[in-house]
Every structure is written in structure tokens, then in C-alpha cells.
């Protein structure tokens, strides 16, 4: 009785009758101010990283030895020409940061999508079939999880020649097990639900049950929270760059900008700190959105 009152349709205000679970999560997350703020900041940063370089008309790789260590605009000696200043080779830091941001976003997004697809497929299969299939797949997952991402990455990337494709492959390889685990456990509980059993009773094939009945119900909530992993992967991209196993110079990445700046930390501290701040801002906007989506998902799943 109390439960009826407390968790009736009124308790989930955003749940529109007749909309899919994905739409419900989005609608509920949209009500949170931090989601909208995060989205606005992220949209601005994405636009800036796409349009900025051509609007400003500067090159990210052109050296200008006369203008080395130019300070950013808000410090004494800063000019509008180089708003965030220049690095040890006189390259404009704003342009380098924006291009670095674009590369980071691309790598983060593509690798997250990749690990989501790979992990979900394996998790769905393991959770649906159970028994030996599950046992084998889960042991592989365990083994994969027993290697910290960084160790796997530095081993592969450090020994071979890193390029964007290998970086993405390494991240996918390191990141899929988490998805496999989550998707497996929700698949297992979903498989026991009566609507899935009902479908089996009607004679539906395994593939049909998995793709048509289970996947549309369980994957959207997982997919939204994957947004948080885009930020995580961008951090990894920066770490790789810092160690020297990321995208190779002269293409700018946050990691190499930060690493370059450390040598001049005392006389040109902005080389490291300000581009890093831009990256942190971008990550924060993604994390705010991801956090809001996660809360929305938890509210909805609890309400069901």
C-alpha cells in the first residue's frame, strides 16, 4: 500500500507514457541543471575545436622562434595574437589546444563506441547462453581485467609505433571487459524476466530473443553511462601523449603539450597549465552530463 503510493507513476515525473527507456532517461536527465550546463559547455568546446583553427587562421605546427614563450593575454606582455601564449618553439597554444581537444574527443568517442559494441556483444552472449559459454567468456574477461589498462597500453604502444588506430585499438582492448561484465549481469537478470521467457515459449530463436527482446531494453541505460568513459579515455589519451606513446609530434595532443611544458615549468608555467585546464573543463562538462544521466538511469530503474 505504502509502496503503491510512493512509487506510482507520479514518482517518475519525467516518464512519459509510451516513450522508450532511452528517451525517458534523457528526459529525466534534462531536468537537471548540471546536465544542461555540461551540454552547453561541451557543445561550445566541440564547435570551437572544429571551427577555431580556421577562424583564427593560425597554424598549430608553424614555429616562430622570435615569439617563443609568449605569455597569455592576461599576463604582462600578452597579446591578442596569441591569446593563450606560445610554447618553446613559438607555436600558438590556443590552436594547439583546440586541435589536441579535437583529437582527444575523436579518440575518446571512437574507442568508447568500440568497447561498448565489443563488450556488449560478449556480455549479451555470455549472459544469455550461460553455462560453458559464460564460463569461458568470463574467464577471458577476468584475465583481461587483471591487467591494468596502463600496463597493457604502455606495453603495446611503447614497443610498437603508436598511431591513432593502434591507440584506439589498445583502449578498446583494455576497456571492453567492464562492459561485458555489466551487460552480462543485466542480461542474466533480464533473461529470467517473464517477457523473455514468453518469447521463448512462442518459439523465438536465441538471436531473435537477444536482439529484439533483451538488447533494446538493457543497452540504452548502459550506453548513456558510457559517456563517462569518453572522458576517461580522453585522460588516457593525454597520459599516453605525456609518456610519449600517444599520437606522435608534431600533431598536437594534450599529453605532449603538457610534457613539453614541464621542461619550462618555472619560466613559462602556462605552457603546461592552461591547455590542461581546457582539457579539464571539457572532461568536467562530460562528467556532469554523464553523472546526470547515471542518476536519471538509477532513478528510472529503481522506479520500475
Amino acid at each position: 500500500m505504502i509502496e503503491e503510493i510512493a512509487s506510482g507513476p507520479a514518482a517518475i515525473p519525467a516518464a512519459k507514457r509510451g516513450s522508450s527507456i532511452g528517451a525517458q532517461i534523457l528526459a529525466l536527465a534534462w531536468r537537471a541543471a548540471d546536465f544542461r550546463i555540461g551540454l552547453a559547455v561541451l557543445a561550445f568546446l566541440i564547435l570551437a575545436s572544429l571551427l577555431g583553427p580556421s577562424v583564427l587562421g593560425l597554424s598549430a605546427t608553424k614555429m616562430d622562434v622570435a615569439n617563443r614563450f609568449a605569455p597569455p593575454i592576461f599576463l604582462e606582455g600578452g597579446t591578442w595574437k596569441h591569446i593563450l601564449g606560445t610554447d618553446q618553439l613559438g607555436r600558438d597554444l590556443l590552436i594547439r589546444s583546440l586541435i589536441g581537444l579535437r583529437n582527444a574527443l575523436l579518440i575518446g568517442t571512437i574507442s568508447t563506441i568500440g568497447m561498448f559494441i565489443l563488450g556488449s556483444t560478449i556480455g549479451l552472449v555470455a549472459g544469455y547462453f550461460g553455462k560453458t559459454v559464460d564460463l569461458v567468456l568470463m574467464r577471458i574477461t577476468d584475465a583481461q581485467m587483471a591487467i591494468p589498462v596502463i600496463i597493457l597500453a604502455i606495453t603495446i604502444l611503447g614497443v610498437s609505433r603508436p598511431n591513432p588506430v593502434t591507440i584506439i585499438l589498445v583502449l578498446v582492448l583494455a576497456g571492453w571487459p567492464a562492459y561485458a561484465r555489466v551487460v552480462r549481469s543485466v542480461t542474466m537478470s533480464e533473461r529470467r524476466k517473464e517477457y523473455v521467457r514468453a518469447s521463448t515459449i512462442l518459439g523465438a530463436s536465441s538471436i531473435r530473443v537477444m536482439l529484439q527482446q533483451i538488447a533494446p531494453n538493457i543497452l540504452p541505460p548502459v550506453a548513456f553511462v558510457a559517456l563517462l568513459d569518453v572522458a576517461r579515455m580522453m585522460i588516457f589519451e593525454a597520459i599516453f601523449g605525456f609518456i610519449g606513446i600517444g599520437i606522435q609530434p608534431p600533431t598536437p595532443t594534450f599529453g605532449t603539450i603538457i610534457a613539453d611544458g614541464t621542461k619550462y615549468l618555472l619560466n613559462a608555467w602556462w605552457i603546461t597549465t592552461i591547455p590542461g585546464l581546457l582539457l579539464a573543463l571539457c572532461l568536467c562538462s562530460i562528467n556532469l552530463m554523464g553523472g546526470a544521466l547515471e542518476r536519471a538511469r538509477n532513478t528510472l530503474l529503481r522506479g520500475q
Binding site: 522508450s20 527507456i21 524476466k193 517473464e194 517477457y195 521467457r197 514468453a198 518469447s199 515459449i201 512462442l202 527482446q213 533494446p216 531494453n217
Partner: peptide, 15 residues
């Protein structure tokens, strides 16, 4: 032949 299940709430796919 058809089998009808117990729980009217979970027996129907929500999507």
C-alpha cells in the same frame, strides 16, 4: 499449444 505466464507486469516487453 500455448503457455500463459503468471506475472502480468513482466510478461510483456516494455519497449
Amino acid at each position: 499449444f500455448q503457455l500463459l505466464l503468471q506475472d502480468p507486469f513482466n510478461a510483456i516487453p516494455p519497449h
